[in-house]
Design a protein around this nucleic acid. Structure first.
Lengths: 236, 236
DNA sequence: CTTAATAGTGGCGTTACGACACTAAATAAA
DNA sequence: TTTATTTAGTGTCGTAACGCCACTATTAAG
């Protein structure tokens, strides 16, 4: 074997023991003051009938990157693109899947509050309150993965504005503050929060106001660069 | 097929098209005022003879997690455990490896300045200056991965003390400051740097002092929790 | 017209950083 | 033996951004 051509011609992936490799997503939405996570009820083995994160194997014919795999699966369940998506990490071990050594790359993604699920999907998809996933007996190591994803969300919210991607396209500062209070599990000081957000320069006043009980609130939207913005100092 | 046992008994990973999966590491050391990265000269195809990151495939018989894979490979080249190790991210695409769709999980690891390489390893290992890797024509997408790893190092150094894991077990504040200046590619204000490090409470005076030209410097070491510490505010 | 609810501001004290001049302690040179 | 040079380390003032909390503003409900 002297040339790379010869090597590649005779190379067969299946001559070697390789782990299973999948891509799964932790998709959050913030609906009616609850942080929820997208789960699917598994139709096949292993863990048949148990709830799990949406995800699956790479389609080596069509997927061009790991992001593609994650988005394809989320699109299958919801019909829409996430408002935010980042790679979280990758877990591998011989025990996490009964089929053998397996590795899975996890994505963290957000959908808007009013996102609905596609009814006729193969697997039944549900929104579960994050506060209640512990009691759902998730498949694989998906419970600890949801917890890691929440921790990442918490961390990111303390020095970025990505939490806003969990709100509607437009939102009020009070709504953004409430979201942060929910994620941090404690109150945030109003003036300090507004000063900080204002100083970032990442929010645009729409000129519209809310109506209803109490003083109308200015409605804002994110500017283009908002999801890449980092504060120099962390909250929380 | 009605039970999970039956399913697993008849399941064969090789019945499906799976990507190749590997684990590679970007291992840095800070030697003689140069940040260097560990590379190996590839002995086999593909990219035979080119330089690449140390890494390889999961040993499904012996590895218990992805960390194990990364550390095993680094140990093969250096004989020692890194002073710091974290998972960076995972890249996958149909193009990055001529053998087919492949995914690789990248680890970021540090070794001490005086770390040596094991001579009789299968593949020749070298330390390359990070400032010069561009000219080395690295295999796969490893050049962009080295750049990502450096960016992560840069980011982490701006709000943690992990840079200290690139120094000897003991070090002076001036040495730590110089390291940061090298990574940030600009001067750091001495007083501000010392105040910050001092306030973290993560450094311990050894009571020893350096000798040589100029005033002797206090020698410090990291406390146990130092590598997990995060500053509330970022530098740089 | 008053009250409750929600939105938004003023202002003071504190923390941590930037800048920069200063002191301290060693060796090297005169 | 004195002076210069080098490196380590401190004092202090100004500033940016946060914590805190009292205050004003604007709406709907009673």
């Amino acid at each position: 074997m002297t040339t790379e051509q010869e090597f590649l011609a005779s190379y067969n992936v299946k001559d070697f023991d390789q782990p299973l490799f999948s891509v799964d997503s932790v998709v959050f939405r913030y609906f009616e003051s609850q942080l929820q996570v997208l789960l699917v009820k598994r139709k096949g083995f292993p863990f048949k009938g148990r709830h799990a994160l949406p995800g699956g194997f790479v389609d080596v014919k069509n997927d061009h990157c790991l992001n593609d795999v994650a988005l394809r699966k989320v699109r299958d369940k919801t019909g829409v693109e996430p408002t935010y998506c980042e790679q979280l990490n990758t877990h591998g071990s011989p025990d996490r899947d009964p089929r053998g050594w397996s590795a899975t790359t996890i994505y963290l993604a957000f959908l808007r509050p009013q996102s609905t699920l596609i009814e006729d999907a193969n697997e039944l998809a549900i929104w579960a309150n994050v506060s209640e996933v512990d009691s759902l007996d998730l498949a694989f190591d998906h419970l600890s993965i949801v917890n890691e994803a929440f921790k990442r969300l918490h961390d990111r919210c303390s020095y970025t504005l990505i939490g806003a991607a969990l709100l509607g396209e437009t939102f009020t500062l009070s709504a953004l503050q409430s979201l942060h209070e929910h994620i941090f599990a404690h109150k945030v000081e109003k003036k300090a929060f507004r000063r900080r957000v204002e100083a970032s320069g990442q929010l645009i006043e729409t000129g519209e106001y809310t109506a209803g009980r109490g003083r109308p609130a200015m409605i804002y939207k994110l500017c283009e660069t908002a999801l890449e913005y980092s504060f120099v100092r962390a909250m929380d």
